[in-house]
């Protein structure tokens, strides 16, 4: 293995993602005010909280779409808050799925899945194609390979987006409210896909408002408000024993 020195020290018994005292500001607006938590390999973490509390920002910091001003984010030992960060190395490990799918509209579903492994990883086209067919099948979109994003429903597009991320063989998947833009009927098909991923052992960090999903699948739930983690715990205790009035109010609105 040609591990880089920076992550050479990481072993699977250490947190796969380790977030320590992260501060993030947009100009004068401090959006994250000291966030810390760890994610072990194979864990499913749900982040919940009111709109504007910094959930998207936090998740975007993990794959360096946003930079941070203070603190440390490590993914398999790679320090993200490092001016010399090898972004490609990081992004090979971290997959991301967005609320608005963000597929490449000029490419078919299959091509969307194939593009990054061919362009970025320089993998063999025939191999990638085979794998892409399998991934399309895995997200239950057989027969839609040659459809363009504009010809697919929101739920179908989102599943293509998940397959596209998986094609890069990431170790961690980030999901930012990936069902928030979907019709209620199609939410389920996307959740099922994520559930299957989690059951396969994929490490997942999700921002979600799907409490049923969080209760059933999360190993740990974090409730954030105004840039801090207000409360957290495994689902059973989190839902039963939420003490902070902010958490209670949020849960009463959403449940």
């Amino acid at each position: 293995m040609n591990e880089t020195p920076k992550n050479g020290l990481w072993t699977p018994d250490q947190p796969m993602v380790s977030i320590k005292d992260v501060h993030k500001s947009f100009g004068p607006l401090e959006v994250l005010k000291g966030i810390s938590f760890d994610v072990m390999k194979g864990e499913v973490i749900c982040i919940i909280g009111p709109s504007g509390s910094g959930k998207s920002t936090l998740i975007r910091c993990i794959n360096a779409l946003n930079d941070i001003q203070k603190g440390s984010i490590k993914v398999e030992g790679i320090e993200v808050n490092d001016p010399d960060l090898d972004k490609l190395e990081l992004r090979k490990k971290v997959g991301m799925v967005f609320q608005q799918y963000n597929l490449f509209p000029h490419k078919t579903a299959l091509e969307n899945v194939m593009m990054a492994p061919i362009h970025v990883l320089k993998q063999d086209k025939a191999d990638v194609e085979q794998r892409a067919y399998r991934l399309i099948k895995k997200v239950r979109l057989e027969g839609k390979e040659t459809s363009y994003p504009g010809e697919l429903s929101g739920g179908q597009q989102q599943r293509v987006a998940i397959a596209r991320s998986l094609a890069m063989n990431p170790d961690v998947m980030l999901f930012d409210e990936v069902t928030a833009a979907l019709d209620p009927e199609t939410v389920k098909e996307v959740l099922v896909t994520i559930q299957e991923l989690a059951e396969d052992g994929m490490t997942c960090i999700l921002v979600t408002h799907e409490m049923g999903f969080a209760r059933e699948l999360a190993n740990h739930i974090y409730f954030t408000d105004r840039g801090v983690i207000v409360e957290h715990g495994p689902p059973a205790s989190f839902f039963a024993e939420a003490k902070d009035p902010r958490t209670q109010e949020f849960l009463s609105q959403i449940l």
Binding site: L88, R91, V94, F98, N102, V120, R164
Partner: peptide, 24 residues
């Protein structure tokens, strides 16, 4: 957001320009 999708898949600025931004 399309640019960011490419970026999060590991595309460099130039590759994203050639394969995603320019064709669109």
């Amino acid at each position: 957001s399309t640019r960011e999708a490419a970026e999060s898949l590991g595309y460099s600025r130039l590759m994203a320009y050639v394969y995603v931004i320019l064709p669109l």
